[in-house]
């Protein structure tokens, strides 16, 4: 997770400007989804625009939504779950999705 923070520093600045999740960014635990460990609860900070955005909204996953990282496969392909819905996200796409790991007390 720490590695991710360093790597994504540049992106993070851009995100603070555009996303209404500045509060989360201040907490400095925003990671890109492909680094999310298996079994963690996550809150979505940002999803890339365009078709992907549309598709995610149809699946019921939008910014601010709480999801479970069901599985992180080697190489960063991610399977997330929301209610009973499971969605596989390729590593290239997962890289562009930013999330915060939800602490236990926040649940």
């Amino acid at each position: 997770m720490m590695i991710a923070n360093v790597r994504e520093e540049g992106d993070l600045k851009g995100m603070q400007a555009t996303q209404p999740t500045a509060e989360a960014a201040r907490r400095k635990n925003i990671i890109s989804l492909n680094y999310s460990p298996t079994g963690e609860w996550l809150r979505i900070c940002s999803i890339p625009g365009g078709l992907t955005f549309t598709q995610f909204i149809r699946f019921g996953i939008s910014e601010g939504e709480r999801i479970l990282c069901l599985e992180r496969l080697p190489g960063g392909t991610i399977v997330v779950q929301k209610n009973r819905q499971q969605i596989a996200i390729g590593h290239n796409l997962a890289k562009q999705i930013f999330v915060v790991v939800i602490e236990a007390q926040e649940e």
Partner: peptide
């Protein structure tokens, strides 16, 4: 099938394909 596609996705991206 979709789960198989998910499992092989990363290795396929090395040859320019997805799962």
């Amino acid at each position: 099938l979709p789960r198989l596609a998910t499992m092989v996705d990363r290795s396929f991206s090395g040859i320019g394909l997805n799962g």
